[in-house]
Design a protein around this nucleic acid. Structure first.
Length: 478
DNA sequence: TTTTGAGTTGTTCGA
DNA sequence: GTCGAACAACTCAAA
């Protein structure tokens, strides 16, 4: 009777460079790939129908890839400790292999599984490239500032191609173990922009880095322009491990090595540093799990938020009257993705202009982003709110008009997501409320009718938020 | 232990 | 229109 190991799939929906799968292959003659739908996650405030659709598509794609190599995916529903315990009993599995996940929920869940399975559970690296416990200061404590973290992270030198584990050519899987019939979730996001699965992820990576004139070489400049596809758009794939994070870092290092000019080299370096930002926030959440519900800097727990639900609804639905903000929120609602620059602008607007608790925005993003990840999303929101590690100075308040003018000068992004502004003159696209009535009629965009007037005055809001943050600081100082 | 330099992504104001 | 300074003070990392 051949020995069996379970490959427990969580956020590693891929065959290439998968350390959990690889370990399973070395520990047993047969490998049983298992994905468990965990009802413990269903009630979470971070639940997302969009992300569920993307995950479901990813599982179907993985099943296709597995069948090509003679294997088969088993999907079960239930508490992972119970499901895995039963599968081990039924199949005499000698090991369960999974990539270690550092989010608080995952740590608790894996603790329960470890209690049930004992040393049959094997956790490997893979979700992050360098594990949190391996990138520490000389005194053994974690970094809380990005730049020194990044230096230490890069100290071992470039990722080598030789470390990447190829996809197995064949995978022997015990026969006759059925999936439970699971109804497919309603597809609520048009996934055409992000076709789920490893082949699509590899294709996207290749498009971004291959060739003399690859987008990665223009990344330093173009990544800030939301009207252009200047970013890799790999985030949803990284979220579910449809591409190996290590493989993206390898691609970045290789791009740095073959960059034809200093400027293109810089593009690849900036992209690598974005990959390291992902690692940074993974280790922040790991070492400081309280950030999930509180400010990294406790002083800001005292900010007196306005938390006006009417303002919040306007922000969610993309009708604040500030075009760059509304375009961003519509892009999110329609596609499950938002450009990085506009994430900052929209987030800054919610927190600083509307004076709404960053957690409200964090939750909304988690409910809609295909790439919604507790570590990266929390880190980004706390950064924008100025409550996090490496926090922005309190006086850095984005101006939604000047940000739009700077990064979307012709309004290409705005026009794409706000068709009601399509005919507005370039001169007015970031401040449509300033148009004279005759121009509004000519552009088929009457303010207050076709497109809202601004829900708040930026100059007023700026003063209000500066005062609110200052007051939170003063409170502590007393 | 003390000291020193630095810290992703901005805005506004006044010369 | 352009440009530099001011906007607080603090905490962190490393010497």
């Amino acid at each position: 009777m051949p020995t069996t190991a379970i490959w427990w799939i969580r956020r590693d929906l891929r065959l290439t460079d998968n350390q959990a799968l690889h370990l399973a292959c070395t520990l047993a003659q047969q490998v049983l790939p298992v994905f468990i739908i965990d009802p413990g996650l269903q009630g979470s405030q971070y639940n997302s129908p969009k992300r569920a659709s993307f995950l479901w598509g990813g599982l179907q794609a993985l099943q296709q890839e597995l069948q090509k190599i003679g294997s088969n995916l088993v999907v079960r529903t239930g508490a992972p400790a119970e499901v895995l315990g039963q599968l081990c009993l039924d199949n005499g599995a000698v090991a369960v292999c999974a990539e270690r996940d550092y989010s608080p929920y995952a740590v608790a869940r894996d603790g329960r599984v470890a209690q049930r399975l004992g040393d049959h559970l094997h956790l490997t690296p893979g979700v992050s490239i360098r594990e949190p416990a391996t990138v520490l200061k000389d005194d053994g404590r974690p970094y809380t500032v990005f730049t020194p973290f990044s230096r230490r992270w890069q100290a071992p030198g470039p990722i080598r191609r030789s470390v990447v584990i190829p996809a197995p050519h064949t995978l022997t899987t015990p026969q006759g173990i059925a999936s439970e019939p699971t109804p497919a979730p309603t597809v609520v996001a048009p996934l055409a922009r992000f076709p789920p699965g490893e082949p699509a992820a590899k294709q996207r990576l290749a498009t971004f880095v291959n060739g003399e004139t690859a987008p990665v070489f223009d990344y330093a400049n173009q990544r800030n322009l939301p009207g252009i596809d200047g970013t890799s758009q790999l985030s949803p794939y990284l979220r579910f491990g449809m591409i190996s994070p290590r493989l993206t870092a390898l691609a970045a290092y290789e791009a740095i090595a073959r960059a034809p000019t200093a400027e293109s080299r810089r593009g690849a370096e900036v992209w690598l540093s974005e990959i390291i930002w992902r690692e940074f926030y993974i280790q922040i959440l790991h070492h400081f799990p309280y950030v999930r519900s509180s400010c990294f800097r406790p002083i800001y727990d005292g900010v007196a938020w306005a938390n006006n639900p009417v303002d919040f609804a306007a922000w969610c639905e993309g009708r604040t009257g500030y075009p760059i903000v509304d375009a961003a929120m519509r892009q999110l609602a329609q596609t499950g993705w938002m450009h990085n620059r506009t994430r900052m602008i929209a987030a800054s607007f919610l927190v600083k202009d509307l004076l709404i608790d960053w957690r409200w925005g964090e939750r909304w993003f988690m409910q809609h982003l295909l790439d919604g990840d507790p570590a990266a999303n929390n880190g980004g929101w706390q950064w924008t709110a100025g409550t996090g590690t490496d926090a922005a100075p309190y006086f850095r308040v984005f101006n939604p008009v000047s940000q739009g003018q700077r990064f979307d000068p012709q309004g290409a992004y705005i026009r794409r997501w706000l068709p009601e502004l399509a005919a507005v003159d370039e001169r007015d696209i970031h401040e449509p409320w300033l148009m004279p009535r005759s121009d509004q009629i000519r552009a088929h965009c009457q303010i207050g009718q076709d497109y809202p007037a601004p829900i708040t005055d930026h100059a007023f809001s700026r003063q209000r938020v500066l005062a609110a943050y200052k007051a939170a600081g003063a409170e502590i100082a007393e």
